[in-house]
Design a protein around this nucleic acid. Sequence first.
DNA 1: ACGCCGTATGTGAACGGTCACATTGGGCTG
DNA 2: CAGCCCAATGTGACCGTTCACATACGGCGT
Lengths: 338, 338
Amino acid sequence: MPSDPTRSRAPSIRDVARLAGVSYQTVSRVLNDSPNLREETKLRVQQVMDDLQYRPNRAARMLVTSRSRTIGILSASSSQYGPASSITAIEQAARAEGYFVNTVNLDGSDRESIERALNHLLDQAIEGLVVIAPQVRVFNTFTQMNLSVPFVTLQSTGTSDHALSVDQIAGARLATRHLIELGHRNIYHLAGPQDWIEAEARMHGFLTEMSEHDVVATAPILGDWTAEFGYFAGRELLRVRDFTAIFSSNDQMALGLMHAVRDAGLDIPGDISIVGFDDIPEARHFWPPLTTVRQDFGELGRRAIELLLNGGGQLGGPSPSGIIPELIVRQSTGTSRF
Amino acid sequence: MPSDPTRSRAPSIRDVARLAGVSYQTVSRVLNDSPNLREETKLRVQQVMDDLQYRPNRAARMLVTSRSRTIGILSASSSQYGPASSITAIEQAARAEGYFVNTVNLDGSDRESIERALNHLLDQAIEGLVVIAPQVRVFNTFTQMNLSVPFVTLQSTGTSDHALSVDQIAGARLATRHLIELGHRNIYHLAGPQDWIEAEARMHGFLTEMSEHDVVATAPILGDWTAEFGYFAGRELLRVRDFTAIFSSNDQMALGLMHAVRDAGLDIPGDISIVGFDDIPEARHFWPPLTTVRQDFGELGRRAIELLLNGGGQLGGPSPSGIIPELIVRQSTGTSRF
DNA sequence: ACGCCGTATGTGAACGGTCACATTGGGCTG
DNA sequence: CAGCCCAATGTGACCGTTCACATACGGCGT
C-alpha cells in the first residue's frame, strides 16, 4: 500500500494549540477532559480540533502510557456459529469499554502455529487476551507458556480460574435427561472431537446423567462437528440400529444424522429421537425442527470482557462459570415407542 | 485492567544495545535487517534479543514511521456464514503479508453507527479498509465520506472501482436458468432485503434471466435472510400456490421455505423445486439436500487483500469482479410436473 | 605516502503525545 | 494588605524507534 508522500503528516496537538492560542498541554487536557479547565478555553480548543479534523495519534499516546487499549482474541474455527457469535459479542463489549479488538485465527492446532498467532498478538501489545480456541491442546499450550498478559478462556477445564464458559455439563445433562424421561434407554452420544474441551464436557455430562438414571451407555462416537460426519456416522449406526435416540454434541452433526435417518426411510421422532446442541438459528427450521440446547454466546462474550477488565472477577458477581444453558424442546424428540 | 506498576517497562533497543556492546542504531539495523552489517555483530545482537525476550515496540515504530501495518474490516452481520468466512480469509491473507487486522461490527445501519465504527478504525490509524457491510446505505455513506484510506468493498454496485465481489448476477442467472431448463415457468424469487447490494444483484440476475427466456416473472418477495422469514413467506405463498419453483436469495431462507412446504404436506422437489444461494456447509444435509449456488468466500478475502495492498489491482491480473460462482445441483430441484 | 571510497558503526533529532513540575493571577482569610 | 491557596495554564523531559547525517577504519589506485 503506497503511502502518499505528498500528504503531510496529520495535525498534532501542537498545531491545535497554536491555532487555539494555548499551549499543547492545555490541548492534552482537553483530550483527557481533566478538571480545572475554563469552559471557554475548552470549547475554543474543541472548535479548532473539529476544524482541523484532528485525531489523537494512538501510537504516541500508547508509547508514553504503555497502554494499547487493545484486546486480543485468539480463535479457532471462527466461522462456526458459536465462536463467531462470541467474537461479535466480545468485540462489541470491548468497544463499549473503549477497547480495540484484534482477532487472530489459528491455522492449525500445532504448537508452532499457536505460538505464531500469539506472537502476532503480543506484537500488538495487547492488554488482555480472550482465547476461543477450544482444543485441549491449545489450552495446555497456553498454560505452559505462562503468559504475561491477563487472559480468559471461553471454555473451562475446571482447573483454571481464568476460564469462563457456558456450563456444558449441565447442558448435556439437560439433553440426556430429556431423552431418558421420554422413555429412551438405548441412547447413543455423537461427541465432538476428543481434543475439544467442550466435547469432553458434554460427553461427561451425558455419561453422568446416564449412570445416575441407571441407564447403560454405549461408548460415545467421536465426530468432528460437521454435518458430513453426522451423516456418515448415522449411516453406520443404522446398519445395526440398536438405539432409539441420539444426543449429538452439536446441531450440525444432528443435521447430518437426521439426513441419514431419513435416507434409511425412518421417521423422526417416530423411530429415532435426536437432540442437538447450540441452537444455531437454522435449527428451528430443520426437518423436523430440532430439539437442542441453547447457549447464550452473547452473554458469554460480554462476561469475558468484564472478567478481563476487572482482573479476575473479584467483583463477586455471578459465578464465573455460571452460564446455564437452556433446553429447547422442538419436534425431533418423542416418547420411545419401545 | 489494572496495569502492574511494579513490573518495569519492557526492554528497549537501548537495553539490547548496551548488553550487546553496540549502539542502539545498530540494533535498529538488525531489526530492519539492513545491509552493511557484519554477520558476527548481527548474531550477537540477535542473541541478546532472545535472552531478553525483546519485542520491538510497535507504538514507537508506528509513531516515527506513521505506518500502522493494520488493516481495518468493517463488517455487518459477521456471524453469518458468508461474512464470517470472508473475514477469516482476509485475516489470514493480511497476516501473511505482515499486517494486523482490526474488525469492527456495525451495530446498526444508520449513518451514526457507521461513523462511529469508522472512527474507531481510523483511531487505529488503519492503512486500508475492507468493507463487508453490504447494505446499499452503508456503501453510499462511504462514498459520501470520501475516505482518506484506501478501501475495498466486498460487493460491487458496478460504479465503483475499488469493489470486488463474486458475480452475484451470474450466480442468480445460473440458478434461474437451472429452474427454467427443468421446465418451470411459474417461479418465485424470495429476495434479500432491498437495502442489500447482493440482494439487489441476485434479483436483477433473476429478472434478466427470466425475461431472456421469455418467462413472466412475478414480483420478488423481499425477505430478511433468515430461515424464519423463509418459513412465513412460504406459508403465505402456499395459500395460493401458483408456482412450481422458488429461487431463494440465500440458503437460510431456502431452509425456512422447505420447512413451510413440508408443513403443507407437499413434496420437494416433486411438488415444488427450491434453489438457494451461498452453499453453506449445512446445505448439503438439508432435507432434501439443497441445490444452491456456491460462492468462494476464501478467494474473495484473499483477493481483497491483494487489491488493497497493490493499490487498486493495477497488476492487470484477473478482472477484479471476476469471481464466478458455481451451481451445485442437489436434490431440492426436479423437472416441473406441470 | 596521500587521498578517496565503501563498509561498518555511532550521534542527534524527531515523531506526538503524557507526566511532573513550575508559573501566573485572582479571591479569600486574618 | 500580606499571605496563602487554588484554579488555570505553561515548560521541559521522556516514551522507543527510525531517519539523516557524521564518524572510524581498512584497502586500493596513483
